[in-house]
Amino acid sequence: MSDVVVRQCPGGPLLVRGAETVLDDDGNVHEVTRPVVAVCACGKSSRKPWCDSTHKSIPSTR
C-alpha cells in the first residue's frame, strides 16, 4: 500500500483507503482488514475506532 486517502462523509464517518492500521484515542493499534474502512468521527461509536452508524441516532449537526 502506498497512499492513504481519507474522505470525510458529511455528517458521517471518515472513509479511509490504503491504511494498514488505525490508532484509537488510547494509542491502541487496530489492523485494517477491509479494502476501505469507516472510522468514527462523531465519537459515539461503541466499536471505536470503527463507525457503527450510531451518528444516525444522534441529532444531526450538518
Binding site: C9, G12, P13, L15, R34, V36, A38, C51, D52, S53
Partner: peptide, 14 residues
C-alpha cells in the same frame, strides 16, 4: 454487517 455496511453505504451511495 454493523461495521461493513457503515462503510458500504457511503461507497454505494456516493
Amino acid at each position: 454487517h454493523v461495521e461493513a455496511d457503515a462503510v458500504h453505504e457511503h461507497v454505494a451511495s456516493s
